[in-house]
Write a protein that binds this DNA or RNA. Structure first.
Ligand code: NAD
Ligand code: NAD
Lengths: 241, 241
DNA sequence: CGGAGTTTGTGACCGCGAGAACAAACTCGC
DNA sequence: GCGAGTTTGTTCTCGCGGTCACAAACTCCG
């Protein structure tokens, strides 16, 4: 029984800014930022939590709690200053300056992503497009030359890239991810329907179209069943009164 | 078998199929289905929860719990039959037959989606492409003629469409959603960065690229700060890997 | 200057979901 | 037939996250 259980008093102080923002809150901050941008474009200088919450599609209490994690940037009885809050959220997320991004796999989806203007307007800058296929290389997409996949490490080092987008077929996704990690990339956005294995310290987020549709299909099935009465062909029992 | 002996309780048995599957589980079922498909393609006939869990990138206990919501389809001491379990999951999700889907907004992203083969192989069939712009209409994308947006209601009724995909600019998204709902669509997959307002009974899922990237940027910022020396106290040794 | 009205920030509560642990059920070898 | 080994299905516990409700803080007006 040594003093192993130090227990670290450390107090329960929760209000130390920049300390452990809940993941669910992090996922909503970009939504708030977008809503604020939209308000700013309409020359609205300040807003209440209620207004911002409806613009963002969330509960106002949740919004206030989320914002409280980054500090007290509102004024009681008044609301939030749009520009000021925008900046604070952008600073917390880390998009006050642009992040360089590379896209690997310039097929159907990769080209759409490359042409997507929403990147640059929200804190990101596509600095390179990479593809393994010979016919693609050298072609220009969205003003950028498509470069060979072999140049990955060189580009990542030269441009200080830490975020990579994968839009290659599922079979190649793990290889690309491995190469990205080896090159020094530590955040990956994966569009391929594959489970990626990465070392600790590397973040992966996935966007999976089929999964989203299947989730919708599940609820749609239940709606149909609800309206219909029965669910399926009951080979077992399914006796209904 | 069929000896349903101790069926008296029914209290916490909770094994009534088709009753309240948790949302988090629903979101993972497609992942399991994909992993199973992959196993089947490699001619693997059965697997344990451990194997399937690693293939799906989740914890085995979580996987077993998830599967238990749809019934007892495994065999203790043996594992799961791949084909049988695949069918059961597909049936639960509702993708034993194909769902007709329409895509509205055939720009960069819409064309990529239309050309995406993953739809048809996972329970969905693109039956129509719609766009409001004159120059697009009549053109053929992925073997389908692009039709005027005004035909929406007619197409939805004729093809019994209940799932719609929105890939128009954010400013038009709400209008398109309203038209979809009016036409009878009750599930929407939205790619536009906009908050959609829909009546109850209509499901909306959103895929938002910028948000995903900003979440990555947030964690990336913290990694940079961590490595930079913004860490003040060195008293604690337990650095989370 | 003070009270009424408004809005933020936060403490309390509760339900869902993740994970560990274990009993039940099945197979296999003898 | 029976015990040993294996794997599922379920129970229990704990922490995160969503919601409510309210005190604190600010403005406005008389
Ligand atoms: N098209 C869509 O709408 C869509 C939607 C959701 C998901 N996805 C997924 O995104 C991925 C790409 O889809 P797509 O339709 O653009 O496919 P695609 O076949 O059109 O393009 C894939 C590109 O990746 C390149 N590539 C292949 N292997 C590579 C490697 N090892 N290194 C570098 N580049 C490589 C190919 O040359 C090709 O240009 C797929 O995994 C697909 O499942 C696509
Ligand atoms: N391109 C991408 O990679 C990408 C990624 C993420 C999100 N998005 C989002 O997806 C949406 C589409 O992106 P895009 O790059 O394809 O844009 P785009 O401008 O290339 O295409 C939009 C299409 O929608 C059509 N359209 C406009 N208003 C319409 C209406 N009221 N009814 C029917 N059709 C209409 C236009 O004619 C055009 O063909 C945007 O909201 C964008 O923010 C795109």
């Amino acid at each position: 029984m040594t003093a192993r259980s130090t227990n670290t008093g450390e107090g329960s102080g929760a209000q130390d800014p920049h300390r452990d923002i809940p993941e669910a809150t992090v996922a909503r901050l970009p939504v708030y930022l977008r809503a604020l941008t939209s308000l700013a474009e309409r020359n609205i200088a300040s807003c209440s939590s209620e207004e911002l919450a409806t613009a963002a599609g969330v509960n106002s209490a949740k919004l206030r709690k989320d914002l409280s994690y980054l500090g007290s940037y509102g004024t009681r009885g008044v609301g939030y200053d749009v520009d000021y809050l925008s900046y604070q959220i952008a600073r917390e997320i880390g998009v006050t300056h642009d992040w360089p991004v590379i896209i690997v796999g310039i097929g159907n989806l990769g080209q759409a992503l490359a042409n997507f203007s929403g990147f640059s307007s929200r804190g990101f800058r596509t600095v390179a497009l990479l593809d393994a296929a010979e016919p693609m290389q050298g072609r220009t997409v969205a003003g950028l030359e498509v470069r060979p996949f072999a140049d990955l490490a060189e580009i990542v080092a030269a441009e200080q890239v830490s975020i990579g987008v994968i839009s290659v077929p599922a079979t190649a996704a793990q290889d690309v991810a491995d190469a990205m990690v080896a090159a020094g990339i530590s955040s990956i956005l994966n569009f391929a329907p594959a489970v990626l294995n990465v070392p600790p310290g590397v973040d992966v987020r996935k966007v999976d179209l089929s999964i989203e549709l299947q989730i919708l299909a599940y609820h749609e099935s239940r709606k149909a069943a609800e309206a219909d009465g029965t669910v399926d062909n009951g080979s077992e029992e399914g006796i209904r009164a």
